[in-house]
Amino acid sequence: MEKEFNTFKNVIRLPHKYAAGPTYTKFYNGLKESKILGTRCPSCAVTFVPARSFCPKCMKNLDTWVEVAQEGEVQTWTYAGKDFFGIPGKAPVVIVLVKLDGTEGSFLHLIGGINLESADTVKKALRKGTRVKAVWNEEKKGHMLDIKYFAPLSKKR
């Protein structure tokens, strides 16, 4: 339908301070030292990454810390080619779920180090099972993006 009447444009801004709590604080401190930390459930023996304070299945509090592998396998990925208001980072980005070696579930992050020009160029470099490795930023802030991205390993091991 054609727009007939006036509209009112405005931006709502809200400031936030999120409490990381002890578990995420320790996880972020690990990132500062280029380590990816997980917690292991003593009951079901699953290792969660990022580290969690409790096991969502057994509801046990977790305090067994392990440094996990920085390599893993691509489970699934998608290509976001278009910018939208407030997108963290800048398009194009490839979002990926990586199963880090020795862990359960998938680690959500970005793919880099490949040609991101289009979904087709990404497709050539990425598929389920592609081995990838964490690439770190020089400067660490204790932030999820201290890991710059995961890059495909040049050849299979």
Partner: peptide
């Protein structure tokens, strides 16, 4: 010593007045 992540959520709107 626990971290606090500071952030701002900012969302744009275009609200229709109607007739």
């Amino acid at each position: 010593d626990y971290y606090i992540l500071e952030d701002q959520v900012s969302i744009p709107y275009e609200n229709a007045y109607g007739l």
